[in-house]
Nucleic acid binder design. Structure first.
Lengths: 192, 192
DNA sequence: GTAATTTCTTAACAATTGTTAATTCAACAG
DNA sequence: CTGTTGAATTAACAATTGTTAAGAAATTAC
C-alpha cells in the first residue's frame, strides 16, 4: 500500500477506488534544501505528502524574526491548511531543511471529493480536528512549561532522533521560544 | 435584532427563518460566579452565548496547575468546540468569573442544521476557521514575545478594559504564562 | 582542497523570572 | 459589623534568560 494511502486510512476508511481518485491527481515534486514549498503572503492551495526529506514551518513576525512552529519529516502532510480553507494568503512559510521529494495534490481537488464521497468528507473533518488538537497541545506546552522542560519534552517525543539529528539548533531554539545561546546552555546543563 | 443573530450574521448570511430554527431551541441559563459551564473530562456538547457576565477557559495540567487560555465576555460564544466535533471528553473547563446568563443550544442541533442548510454549514466552517486562526495567533504571541511584551499587547487589545476591570490578576498571570508575583512586578515597572 | 561563510559554543554581565515568606488589601460569610 | 479567608503586593535570594562578543566547529562555495 502507498504510504500516503496508509496515512489517509488512519483518518477515514477510504477504499481503493476512492484512493485512486486522489492518487491520479498527484504529482511528484523535488524541493532543494532551503527552497520553499509554501510562502508567507501567497494564497497557497497545494498539499504535499513528504516522501523523503524534512521541512520546517515558520512565521516571520513584524520585527522580522523567524519563529519555527513545526517540523515535518517523511510520511507526513505539509500545507498551509488555513490558506486552503479560507482562500486567504498564507500566514506561514514551509521550507525544505533537506533535499526533499513530495507527492503534491491540490486542496481544490480534495474539496471536490468532499462533496461526492462521505469517506473523503470524513477525512477532511478529521484533518481539521487533528490540526486543532495539535496546536492546542503546543499552546499548553508553551504556557505551562519553562524552556528547559520544553526541551526535555522534545527529547521524550517520538521525533526526538529525527529532530536532533536533522534540524539545525537555531531552528530548534526558536521552536522552543528561546535563543540558540540559551538552548546551548540547556543542552550543556542536561548532559551533566 | 437579537445579539446572537447579529454575531452569526458576521459569519454567514442566515435569513430570519434559518435564525428561528436555532433560536427556538435555545434556553436561557444562569451560572453563578465560580460555577462551571464546561468541565474538563466530560463530553460537552452545549454551546453558550453570553448575554451578561464573563468566563475563563482553562486547563488543569498533570501537575495540577490551572492554565487560563481565554477570557470571554458578553456577546461571545463559549463551548468546548473540540469536544463537540469529536464527541470525546473535553480537555478544558469553562468557569463563570461573574454571575452570568447564557443562551444555550446544543451542538447536535446545530449539526442537524448543517445538513439541510448551506448557510448554517458555512457558519460551522467559519467558526472552525475562526478558532484555528485565533489559537495560531495566541501561539505565535507565546513564542515571540516575552512576558512583559505579552502584557503590553494585552493592554493594547480591544478587551483591555474588560480584562483589567473584571478578571482577577492570578488568572491574567497564568493567561500570560507567568506567576502572579511576576505580573505584579511588570505592572509596577510599566506604571513608572 | 582550501577559503569563506555560517553555525554552535562559551564567557561575562545585566535584566528578568521563580520561589519563599511576610504584609497589606479586598471580598465574603455569618 | 466583624472575623476569616483569599488575593495582591513587596522584599530578598537563587536560578534562568537575554545580550554582546569572541572563538571553535561545521558547512558551503569556488
Amino acid at each position: 500500500m502507498h504510504p500516503l494511502q496508509a496515512l489517509i486510512k488512519k483518518f477515514s476508511p477510504i477504499n481503493s477506488n476512492e484512493w485512486e481518485l486522489l492518487y491520479e491527481k498527484c504529482t511528484e515534486v523535488t524541493i532543494h534544501k532551503g527552497d520553499f514549498f509554501i510562502k508567507q503572503g501567497r494564497v497557497e492551495t497545494r498539499i504535499g505528502f513528504i516522501i523523503t526529506g524534512s521541512f520546517r514551518q515558520f512565521y516571520i513576525n513584524p520585527s522580522g524574526e523567524e519563529l519555527s512552529t513545526y517540523f515535518f519529516f517523511e510520511h507526513n502532510l505539509v500545507s498551509s491548511y488555513i490558506s486552503c480553507i479560507t482562500g486567504k494568503t498564507s500566514l506561514i512559510s514551509i521550507q525544505a531543511i533537506e533535499e526533499s521529494t513530495l507527492l503534491v495534490f491540490d486542496y481544490t481537488h480534495l474539496a471536490s471529493l468532499f462533496k461526492d464521497y462521505p469517506n473523503w468528507q470524513l477525512f477532511g473533518r478529521k484533518i481539521a480536528e487533528y490540526l486543532l488538537a495539535g496546536i492546542e497541545e503546543r499552546m499548553v506546552g508553551l504556557l505551562a512549561d519553562n524552556p528547559e522542560e520544553r526541551y526535555r519534552k522534545l527529547l521524550a517525543s517520538p521525533d526526538k532522533q529525527k529532530i536532533l539529528e536533522r534540524i539545525p539548533q537555531q531552528y530548534i531554539a526558536n521552536y522552543l521560544g528561546i535563543t540558540p545561546i540559551s538552548l546551548s546552555r540547556i543542552r550543556n546543563r542536561i548532559n551533566k
